[in-house]
Every structure is written in structure tokens, then in C-alpha cells.
Design a protein around this nucleic acid. Structure first.
Lengths: 240, 240
DNA sequence: CGCACCGTTAAGCCGCGGTTAAGAGTCGAG
DNA sequence: CTCGACTCTTAACCGCGGCTTAACGGTGCG
């Protein structure tokens, strides 16, 4: 397996704007239980102030507020910031929903909703806004770095000049780094055709890969062949 | 054939994956009326293929597909791309919703839903992804600067004289700088016609772009072709 | 000692893609 | 309404790069 998990989410700061004490307390508790830092406000004006003061990562906004209408809070919020907003509303009609979304809301849940649903939507919105700033997808094995979408690979910082097949081959091996991969598997996964093709083709491409990776006969740095079984790609020094 | 490409607002390319003929046609029509370019698929596998081929801006995915379960389609889509997905489902229970959102869905609407609601959610998701992604006024790649709204581009300070298609092509490549872009993707994203068109057209336009960018055979400064896959635009000195 | 597996190199074929040119369609100006 | 400029598409041609196949030598294992 390759290290690819980026599910470690930094603590997020949420703001709940909701006038109903019971619902607000419930929301705060359930969101806190999920590991969020939760702030709250009971009125529109208070919520707006807190939002601009504390700059939360996301706002959960009730539409039916006593002082200012939720849509106005949303509009004012949008006028000055990009803070994502999830609308919670008792109004279950299309016009309200469309108006809210078009006013800049990121999601819209109808009361009564479950806390689990709201939590899921919070996660979804946060993931989206966060990932938009994310970097590019890479597979790294030792000094070998593969840019998947760019279809480029570097070895110790030097760009590798690989043919399409060579790239696919290297990528597949890298994605299964540490595992022995059989030629049959490579034929089906990289060559995409189980029926035709001989193992010899794989051998030839592996040879070319070796050359380009700078492998020599008696210094197997990345590619090691397991006789009778297949081939394995690993980092020179056992990097986990 | 294609006709006008006078895009004041960047036309968005949507993909609807839905097996019910009636619903699918309805969706396509209503979304087209809102100015989107809509492609469709009736099965999960077909949808997955089209999504990976044409790289739509957003996918509307039915959960109840005949061949592959919608959640699996979503998972496979997420495994290789960041394309936003709105789930449309008849299942109105929390576990389904939470599972879908945590699997990477961006929104979740329950059937029966109105087209106006879906349209609003489409707009909301697109706005969210766009504002972070490509909402830029200006795209810069090395010495190449593209003024999106003004539809003009300069290379090392010199104004480029580009045809509309050439501009759209360059813009798309620049917005995905560093990534290899397939011709199929270009045909759907730049030419706006998922079904028609030959790769040769793209080749010709790329050739013209190259000339105007001052590319010569043995000095690939910005445009590199990846044989069998597509083309990639990068700054002359490799950006990471 | 022989066989099977593997690495490497060489050779040939195939098709992708670059380029150019010509024809069709579109739009605007007069 | 007509003409002309511009742009896009389609077709034809060709070079070149990559893939495959074949041949040969080496090496480990039975």
C-alpha cells in the first residue's frame, strides 16, 4: 500500500446561528462530539458579528430568526466573505431553497433534520472548500516521484523520459510498491488485454525501465525480480 | 454542426447518469434550457467511462442503477478525479445520505425532486468549486498570461492573435496546466459537443497554437504531447 | 548438466500526430 | 442582399516514435 491517506482534518471552527435554544444546544453538542470547535449565536445580528469577528470555517444558519431574516444574514455574510454557509430551514418549498442557494448558500437542509445528516453535509462542504486548494496527486516511492495526472515522473529530482507504456508500468508498480507483481497482472492491468500478449513484452519494457531508472546488474535499487513469480518495486532504503 | 461558441459565461458541461428514460430526458431538457451542455448515460459503467473520457464539470448520479450501484460509481470516480457529484436518489434515509456524502458526493437530493431544485443545487455546487478552482480573472503559466474576461492572451508581454477556438483551447490547457489533457476532454470542454467531432480537429488547432506560441519541433517550451494520451501545457522551466 | 526463466539488443511494422491545403460555413460591412 | 474576410473542418501525406516479435546469451535451479 502507498501512503495516500489525507483524512487527517485540522480542527474546524463552526458557527451555529439558531434562535431555538433546544435545537441550538443539540447541534452544538453533536458537532462538538464530532471534533469540531463550535461557537453559537441566537440572533441574526449577533451571528453576523461573531462570524466577522471569529472567521469560522463554516456557518450553519437558521432561516427563521427573530430579528433579521436569515437570507439577509446570508447576503451580508456573502458581501464580505467566502465563508461557506449551510442553511437550516423549516421552509420546505422550492422558492426558499432556490433563493437561498442562489444567494450564496452552499447547502440547504430542511427541518426536522437529523444531526447525523447535518454532520455529513458539514463534512461534505468542508471537504469541497478545502480540497479546492489542494495540490496534485502524487505517488512517491523513495526518490521516485510520479505525477499521476501530469503523467510525469522524476527520479531524485531528475525528469524521466518515459514512453506511455513505460509510465503506466512504472505507475502500476509504484502503486503496489513492496508487492510482487506478476507479469500476468501487468499484462491485464497495464496492457489492458488478457487474451493476447506474451510475457516477453513485459520483460522488454521492464528492461527499458531499468535502464532509465539507472539500475545496473549488481545494484538493484528499485526493481527486484523474483524469479518464477514477478517483479517488485521498492525504495532502496526500506522507507515505509 | 456546432454553431455558436459565443460564451459570455463559461458553458458548463454536465453529465447525467440515470437509467430511467423519462427522468433522464426530463433532466437533460431542463438543464439544457438553463444553458448547460448536457451529456448522459443510462448505465453506471457507461457513465463512468464518459466521465473519465470527457471530464465534465459536474455529474448528476442516480443511486439506483441497473448494472453497478451508484455508490460504487461514485467511489471509482473519486478514486481518480475530483469531479463534483450530486447524488439523486429515491432512498430517503440517513444512512444512504451519510454514506454518499462521506464517499465524496457534493450534494444529495431525494426523489421526487423538482428540476428547479436540482438546477439550484447544480449552480450552488458549481459556484463552490469554481470560485476556488477556475474563478480566476487571469491565468498565468510562465510567460503566458491569459485575461479570461477580456479573452486576450500575451506571451512574454506580446499580444497573441488568437481565434476564438484557439483562445478557448489555450485557456482550458492553462487552467489545467501540468496535467495531461486528452483530446476527448478537449472536444467536450472546448468544442462543447460530447458526441461528434474528430481528434484531428484538435490536432490542427493545436498545431496553429504551437505556431503562435513560437514552438518549434525540437524546443517544446509550453506544449508537450504525450503520445497516445493527450497534450500538456507547462511553463518552460518545470513547475512542480 | 540441461532446462527454463530472464535480461538485453536489434529489427520491422504500425499508427499516432504534425502539418499543409482546400472546401464549407459564418458573420459583418456596405 | 451580396460580397468578402475569417475561421473551422475535413482530407491527404509523411515522418517518427513506440510496441512487438525474434534471437541470443546468461544464470539459477533441479
Amino acid at each position: 500500500m502507498v501512503g495516500q491517506a489525507d483524512t487527517v482534518v485540522p480542527v474546524t471552527h463552526l458557527l451555529v446561528i439558531e434562535d431555538d435554544d433546544r435545537i441550538r444546544t443539540l447541534l452544538i453538542r453533536s458537532l462538538r462530539d464530532r471534533g469540531h470547535a463550535v461557537d453559537s449565536a441566537a440572533t441574526g445580528m449577533e451571528g453576523l458579528n461573531r462570524a466577522l469577528e471569529t472567521r469560522p470555517d463554516l456557518v450553519v444558519l437558521d432561516l427563521g430568526l427573530p430579528d433579521v431574516d436569515g437570507t439577509q444574514v446570508l447576503a451580508m455574510l456573502r458581501a464580505v466573505s467566502e465563508i461557506p454557509v449551510i442553511i437550516a430551514s423549516a421552509r420546505d418549498d422550492d422558492p426558499s431553497l432556490v433563493a437561498a442557494l442562489d444567494a450564496g448558500a452552499d447547502d440547504y437542509v430542511v427541518k426536522p433534520y437529523t444531526t447525523t445528516q447535518l454532520e455529513a453535509r458539514v463534512r461534505a462542504v468542508l471537504r469541497r472548500t478545502r480540497s479546492a486548494h489542494g495540490g496534485r496527486e502524487q505517488v512517491v516511492v523513495g526518490g521516485l516521484t510520479i505525477d499521476v495526472r501530469g503523467r510525469r515522473a522524476t527520479l531524485d529530482g531528475n525528469q524521466l523520459d518515459l514512453s506511455p507504456r513505460e509510465f503506466d508500468l512504472l505507475l502500476h508498480l509504484a502503486e503496489h510498491a513492496g508487492d510482487v507483481v506478476t507479469k500476468k497482472e501487468l499484462l491485464t492491468q497495464v496492457w489492458q488485454q488478457p487474451w493476447g500478449g506474451s510475457d516477453k513484452t513485459v520483460d522488454v519494457h521492464l528492461s527499458w525501465l531499468r535502464r532509465k531508472l539507472g539500475e545496473t546488474a549488481d545494484s538493484p535499487r528499485y526493481l527486484t525480480t523474483v524469479r518464477g513469480v514477478g517483479v517488485r518495486l521498492t525504495a532502496p532504503d526500506g522507507i515505509g
